[in-house]
Measured scan of single mutants.
Amino acid sequence: CHSECLGNCSQPDDPTKCVACRNFYLDGRCVETCPPPYYHFQDWRCVNFSFCQDLHHKCKNSRRQGCHQYVIHNNKCIPECPSGYTMNSSNLLCTPCLGPCPKVCHLLEGEKTIDSVTSAQELRGCTVINGSLIINIRGGNNLAAELEANLGLIEEISGYLKIRRSYALVSLSFFRKLRLIRGETLEIGNYSFYALDNQNLRQLWDWSKHNLTITQGKLFFHYNPKLCLSEIHKMEEVSGTKGRQERNDIALKTNGDQASCENELLKFSYIRTSFDKILLRWEPYWPPDFRDLLGFMLFYKEAPYQNVTEFDGQDACGSNSWTVVDIDPPLRSNDPKSQNHPGWLMRGLKPWTQYAIFVKTLVTFSDERRTYGAKSDIIYVQTDATNPSVPLDPISVSNSSSQIILKWKPPSDPNGNITHYLVFWERQAEDSELFELDYCLKGLKLPSRTWSPPFESEDSQKHNQSEYEDSAGECCSCPKTDSQILKELEESSFRKTFEDYLHNVVFVPRKT
């Protein structure tokens, strides 16, 4: 048989008469490798580009789960590009990614509803959504962080984005990388972005840091009482949809009607710091009717980097990364020049730590249904340095008659930039024990000054392991946590139920 035959053949030295091919099969003959313009397919066939392209389009058009959109890589027609490569849609070739590779997620039936953290986790790592997304989240724990972890990498949506009755959302900033909504599939009414009845939605994105392009379709905003109209108009300008909307697409009466839409800028007039305090004062603000001013709200939190936005980490279910302080308005003076500047002394802060701070007014709604208010920009203030805590785990070892090696770990709280350490030492008198000992005694162990690591005695271990207080009263049991108490109650309830079950099964009433 021919060298490319495997198993047997019907005619000697003829690659077209093989029972099976050793390498690849091409047009009725066995070959060692697939010549151009053919590609290896499933490690035994040679196919042309049209064959591989037909497989790709067949799966793409069917949208069946589990099928493969075949691509070409290293002269092979394979189910998908290997790690580190992405497909070129024009020629199906796998090309190296520039940075992290995109991950295209194809949605069944063309859309997916995100109504819980669990459903959001199914899209973790996706960068391109081939379909439409509907966000409908009523509640949950730590929602802002969970949504950002699972949806934060999405850069492109081919269909539309719909935010509907998501009472738990305060902001859409968890879509931190969303840059493009194509609108290839539109919501009824030709809408590519749809926001309806979101009672706590206050911000779409921080438009000073976020760009969003909507290729096709219109915007729809109705019944978002805490979303200011200025935020919607800003989205029109940034996304390129200005002029597409009709009169009733953006409701003037049901958007922002319960919001404090600040239209003035508060400026800080005085800032002073110490290692654990920050004193702030800002310019006074009074609405047209000074009785509408209820006070100020001061927001602050630790910020290692200057990239904080107002609604980071917030949701309507209680999660809030900001510390909020309510401040009463100052006494009002008739003389504008003698107006008191409101302020606040922030206490209990960490030394040498940068804080993000902003302040906003708290006002009631005027009778004319106009909203007044003022808010400052987010500023960054760093507390002063102070003395560091003591170095940890000092170790001293003498390696000769004239040297001592000293080692330690950095302090747990540096409280500033540590530039150097101060080492103090003092000579001590020799131990009298060394002169009084009889060095001729056998088995004498000389006193040693070398360091030995501390260890816990058996008594201390027994005390720590004991669940009861000892007789001397030195140790006591740790208080039980809520989960331990709940577990004990469940076990007790189970024992009672099981005992009742045994009584009912074992003891049967005697027939009379």
Results as ranks from 00 to 15, higher is better:
106 H>S: 08
110 G>W: 07
115 D>Y: 06
116 S>C: 15
120 A>G: 08
121 Q>A: 00
122 E>K: 00
122 E>A: 15
123 L>A: 07
125 G>P: 02
126 C>M: 02
126 C>E: 00
133 L>P: 01
147 L>R: 02
149 A>Q: 13
151 L>I: 11
152 G>W: 14
154 I>Y: 00
155 E>Q: 07
160 Y>S: 09
160 Y>V: 08
163 I>M: 11
170 V>A: 09
172 L>A: 10
173 S>W: 09
180 L>Q: 06
184 E>D: 14
187 E>S: 08
187 E>M: 12
189 G>Y: 15
191 Y>M: 09
192 S>D: 03
193 F>R: 02
200 N>S: 13
200 N>Q: 11
202 R>Y: 05
203 Q>F: 11
203 Q>A: 05
205 W>F: 11
207 W>G: 08
209 K>A: 11
211 N>P: 07
223 Y>S: 05
224 N>R: 02
227 L>D: 01
228 C>Y: 03
234 K>A: 13
238 V>R: 14
239 S>V: 11
239 S>N: 05
239 S>I: 10
241 T>M: 13
242 K>T: 06
242 K>I: 08
248 N>H: 05
252 L>H: 10
253 K>N: 14
256 G>M: 02
257 D>P: 02
258 Q>M: 05
259 A>T: 07
260 S>I: 04
262 E>T: 04
268 F>L: 07
275 F>Y: 04
277 K>L: 12
278 I>R: 00
278 I>H: 00
279 L>T: 04
279 L>V: 10
283 E>V: 13
287 P>A: 01
288 P>A: 11
289 D>F: 00
289 D>L: 01
291 R>D: 01
292 D>I: 01
293 L>N: 00
296 F>L: 02
299 F>Q: 13
305 Y>E: 04
308 V>H: 00
309 T>R: 07
311 F>R: 14
317 C>K: 05
318 G>A: 03
320 N>A: 06
323 T>K: 13
324 V>P: 03
324 V>L: 06
325 V>K: 03
328 D>M: 15
332 R>Q: 14
338 S>G: 13
339 Q>S: 07
339 Q>W: 09
342 P>I: 13
343 G>I: 15
344 W>V: 08
344 W>E: 11
345 L>D: 02
348 G>F: 12
348 G>S: 08
349 L>Y: 01
353 T>V: 07
356 A>E: 06
361 T>W: 01
361 T>V: 01
366 S>L: 01
370 R>N: 03
371 T>F: 04
373 G>I: 00
379 I>V: 11
379 I>P: 02
380 Y>A: 01
381 V>C: 04
381 V>S: 07
382 Q>A: 09
383 T>H: 01
387 N>H: 11
388 P>M: 02
392 L>Y: 10
394 P>W: 03
398 S>K: 00
406 L>T: 02
406 L>P: 00
409 K>R: 11
